[in-house]
Simulated scan of single mutants.
Amino acid sequence: MTTETFGRPVVVRKLVVFACFLVTAVSLIPVIMMVLVGLQSDAESMAASPTFWPSSWHWENLERAFDLVPLGHYLLNTVIFAGGTTILETITAALAAYAFARLRFRGRNALFAIYLGTLMIPHQVTLIPQFILVARLQWVDTWAGMILPHAFTALGVFLLRQFFMGIPRDYEEAARLDGASRWQVFSRIILPLAVPAIATFAVFKFIGQWNNLLWPLVISNSDATRTVAVGLRTFQDTNGTQWNLLLMAATVTTVPLIIIFFLTQRWFVRGITMSGLGGR
């Protein structure tokens, strides 16, 4: 082989790394602009010809943002809402996925196809029926009304079912021969092997529910259950011209997601490659 043949993979690898770096840099531009404007003075953020680099750093904007709205309470509400829905969705999706992947019953494939068909229905179509049901149950502006309608997900069932089907049946058969029950097989064999896929799904759902605006906006009427996405909207309605404080509050709400991603990055990447989300 010639030197040119050996050199091509290196050049291609460098081009791919450069392209990834370029895409990452472009993606970070809005985040950097958000942080910089959040540290500007009121006059700079309201100027007719805005500049993104602050002439002086106003770290007191963080305290001002917390003083104008109960941002800390909104963050706590968001943790409860996103955490509660993620836990329930993960549990129900894992149980349903195991049933569709391992249990044999009449009409299993047809039922699974119908269940997947619900993914084609936009969430906005079911919003009004869900609200009517929650209102009749007197769950408006309660945690039950906020969390329980999101306790089931067809997408999670599909992803985990595909992962469960890739686990060899020999493990289950050996456990059943040793006298393990169906629940013991699921909890002691299947779940430990599926930790990467479950962790990936949980991270996806937590981030999605953290940024969920529509359902909390409809069902929450007070600060008792108002999430940070709705709180920022209220913040903008009340203090719409104070862009520096609004973007400072948005920066604060983004930090938890960044921390969660870095803490779960290993499981996140491993789950994507093992569950088929990476295009394999």
Rank of each mutant, 00 (worst) to 15 (best):
A96W: 01
T51G: 05
L39F: 12
I87T: 14
I121F: 07
F52T: 15
P54F: 04
H123Y: 13
A48Y: 10
I87F: 10
R13N: 07
G72N: 11
T85H: 10
I114G: 12
T90Y: 00
T90S: 13
V37N: 08
Q124L: 04
G107C: 04
L127V: 06
L28Y: 14
K14T: 04
V69S: 09
A47M: 06
L39W: 04
G38A: 05
G38P: 07
L119C: 01
L28I: 10
R64M: 11
W59H: 01
Y98F: 12
L119G: 00
G72F: 02
E44T: 10
V79W: 02
I29T: 15
L127S: 00
H58A: 04
F66G: 09
A99C: 06
E89W: 00
E60Y: 00
G38L: 12
H123C: 00
I32L: 15
I29P: 12
G38W: 06
T24P: 00
H123G: 13
A101V: 05
C20Q: 11
E44Y: 03
V35C: 11
L75Y: 01
L15A: 14
L119F: 06
A99D: 01
L103V: 07
L75K: 00
A82C: 06
F112H: 06
L71E: 12
W57R: 05
M46F: 05
V23Y: 09
A110H: 07
M46D: 03
F52L: 14
I29F: 15
F21E: 07
L119T: 12
C20Y: 09
A99L: 08
V35T: 12
L39T: 07
L68R: 11
V26C: 15
T90F: 06
N109D: 15
T92N: 14
V37D: 02
I29L: 15
T86G: 08
F81W: 14
L28V: 13
L111S: 02
V35Q: 02
L76M: 08
F66T: 03
T51I: 11
D67V: 00
A101L: 07
A93H: 05
P122G: 02
G72E: 06
S49W: 09
V35N: 10
I29A: 15
K14W: 08
T90I: 04
L88R: 01
T85N: 12
A93F: 01
E60G: 09
R13E: 03
L15F: 13
M46I: 15
D67M: 12
T85S: 14
I128N: 05
S56C: 00
E60I: 06
N61D: 07
A47Q: 07
L39C: 03
A93V: 03
